[in-house]
């Protein structure tokens, strides 16, 4: 396999040349996955936090269910979202299939259980610590929820990053609901799948390296913000 060397050179060349098609795909990948993670956090963080600190019957079952949902294959999510968004499906009239919005929805559905499950874990630990103090102050549940999310933000940022990692890396869901349409719904992973199927393994691998760099970049940026917060002692 001489493909590795070729792939490295190609990846370097792609990055240096600033190929507009590549930049477009990179930007779309970022937009879709960041958008999906944002939605997933807006839903998953409060949901996970509520499950983490409320005590109610059936809670353990929900935790088990949530943890299991983390393992759902992207392609299954893709199919479910496809069936919802297809013209023949219940949300067909919205005309969202084969749009970036559909991809955001699919990845959000994929990532929300992950975010919720990890947030549940984080918040549960913190809630155990805060519990008696909050009780002694008779803190209302919504204020407690806010405080737990805010004080757990350092760990929750890592949760969001885990969600981002799962979103940006998956191909099964976006290729079904996005259709891998050039200049419309093609993202890094579907481009990689396409080049692989064309047998252009070097280009596919080069794109894969760019994807890794992208992921590293996002993680580094977020951790940079976070470590400054930790230095300030708010971690």
């Amino acid at each position: 396999m001489q493909d590795f060397g070729a792939a490295f050179r190609l990846a370097g060349h792609l990055l240096v040349s600033g190929d507009p098609d590549l930049l477009e795909i990179v930007a779309r990948s970022l937009a879709v996955s960041l958008g999906a993670v944002l939605v997933a956090c807006l839903i998953g963080l409060p949901l996970g936090a509520l499950i983490g600190f409320l005590r109610f019957p059936g809670r353990r079952a929900i935790v088990v269910f949530l943890n299991a949902l983390m393992g759902l294959p992207p392609v299954v999510i893709g199919l479910l979202v496809y069936m919802m968004l297809s013209r023949a499906g219940p949300l067909g009239p919205l005309g969202l299939l084969y749009t970036p919005t559909a991809m955001v929805i699919a990845q959000a559905v994929l990532v929300t259980p992950l975010v919720a499950a990890l947030a549940r874990q984080t918040v549960e630990t913190l809630a155990a610590e805060y519990d008696e103090y909050f009780q002694s102050l008779a803190v209302p549940w919504h204020a407690a929820l806010g405080a737990l999310l805010w004080d757990g933000r350092s760990a929750l940022v890592t949760v969001a990053l885990a969600g981002f990692g799962r979103a940006i890396a998956e191909v099964g869901a976006v290729i079904i609901v996005g259709g891998n349409i050039d200049h419309l719904t093609r993202v890094m992973t579907t481009a990689i799948a396409l080049e692989t199927s064309k047998g252009d393994l070097a280009l596919a691998l080069a794109l894969g390296m760019v994807l890794i760099l992208l992921s590293v970049g996002v993680n580094a940026a977020v951790m940079g913000v976070r470590s400054r917060a930790v230095e300030a002692g708010h971690g």
């Binding site: 913190l126 805060y130 008696e132 103090y133 002694s136 008779a138 708010h234």
Partner: peptide, 22 residues
């Protein structure tokens, strides 16, 4: 000692619970 009464009582625990804030 319900919530209303509890708010009129200060309680400092053996291991004080400090929020992860300033």
């Amino acid at each position: 000692p319900d919530g209303t009464v509890r708010r009129r009582i200060g309680f400092v625990f053996q291991q004080p619970v400090l929020l992860r804030r300033s």
